[in-house]
């Protein structure tokens, strides 16, 4: 996924964590998930992302998730922080 300098990041590359790269704008929600457990939890990760985007009414966004086996709570938390950081950057 290509990002500009408008993108924000959140999280780490430690085991059990994830790294979120997020940029507001574009058309619709582009979500890319990279995870070793994608076969079993790719869908769960996508749902976590959608829950947060819905909660903040973010409809146009690019998100890349580099997951290292994080649980749902961590995925939701990291995406939420990234969304808040991106909104703050836009001055919203």
């Amino acid at each position: 996924m290509e990002f500009t300098d408008k993108a924000v990041k959140c999280g780490t590359d430690k085991k059990g964590d994830l790294l979120v790269t997020l940029e507001l704008g574009g058309n619709g929600r582009e979500i890319e998930i990279k995870s070793k457990v994608e076969k079993k939890f790719g869908e769960a990760i996508r749902q976590d992302v959608l829950i947060i985007l819905d909660a903040f009414s973010v409809n146009n966004v690019k998100i890349q998730i580099d997951d290292l086996g994080a649980l749902d709570f961590a995925i939701k938390a990291r995406v939420e922080t990234a969304v808040k950081r991106a909104l703050a950057k836009e001055g919203k």
Binding site: K39, K40, F41, E43, A44, L71
Partner: peptide
């Protein structure tokens, strides 16, 4: 509860 819902393989 910890791992959440897995897609069956």
């Amino acid at each position: 509860k910890l791992t959440g819902k897995a897609t069956p393989v």
